[in-house]
């Protein structure tokens, strides 16, 4: 009684677990802000040294 795997099913299957990685989308804003902070801090430190 098992259904034959159609080409479309085999293509879609790897995406079936994509829901497990949705947390990455919630982490991205934090990563962007953290990168922004590090970049700003480094550039401010450089500017202070130059002054």
């Amino acid at each position: 009684m098992r259904a034959e795997a159609t080409p479309i099913l085999t293509t879609m299957l790897p995406l079936a677990h994509i829901g497990h990685y949705l947390w990455v989308l919630y982490l991205l804003p934090v990563v962007f802000v953290a990168i922004g902070i590090v970049k700003t801090t480094i550039s401010e430190q450089r500017r202070r040294k130059d002054d």
């Binding site: 949705l22 947390w23 919630y26 982490l27 804003p29 934090v30 802000v33 953290a34 902070i37 700003t40 801090t41 401010e44």
Partner: peptide, 24 residues
């Protein structure tokens, strides 16, 4: 303001974490 860059990161982290928990 510079000192609060880090608090901004904390607040963004808590917000995103909270929304992630709720969405799941």
């Amino acid at each position: 303001t510079r000192s609060q860059y880090w608090m901004l990161a904390v607040m963004v982290a808590f917000t995103c974490f909270g929304l992630y928990l709720l969405s799941v």
